[in-house]
Amino acid sequence: MMPIAVYDAVFVAAAVTLVSDRRGRLGWVALVPLIAAAAALAPLGDHRYLIAPLVALVATLPPVRAAAPALVLAAPAYGSLRAALLAAALFLVTVWLADGLDRRVEQRGAAPSWRGAPARFLVLAVLYAALLPVGHL
């Protein structure tokens, strides 16, 4: 089975972040791809199977609130530090854009059955389509 694509993981992590009422330490979450990419470069020889659990452990150590998106962002295989950096930036930008749009939707008053999580998911779905070319960089 193919591991999840970096671009897909960013949006799943953003969905998990946006549905949480008390999100924490987005900066730390954005660091996780870099940690995962750096760990992949570690000279572990025959013990590379240790990388995934170690990254998971590090990702969940400090912020319990941020464990969910951090773990999702730890899942993909980052080919390089550049890819990890791009994923981190994309995650922060996506959450920032989605937050702004969420406030806008709240101000204007979405349809009652769409308020909150459904509107947030839809915003993320549109951002997924709009930012898709970034996934090819």
């Binding site: 452990l57 969940t60 773990l71």
Partner: peptide, 29 residues
Amino acid sequence: QTWRWVALGWLAATAVPGTPAAAPAAAGA
């Protein structure tokens, strides 16, 4: 013990074929 079992979940999940990425993500989510 939150983070310990999440890490254990990850470790255990690597033993399930086909779910290495899904299991920890499900745990986190």
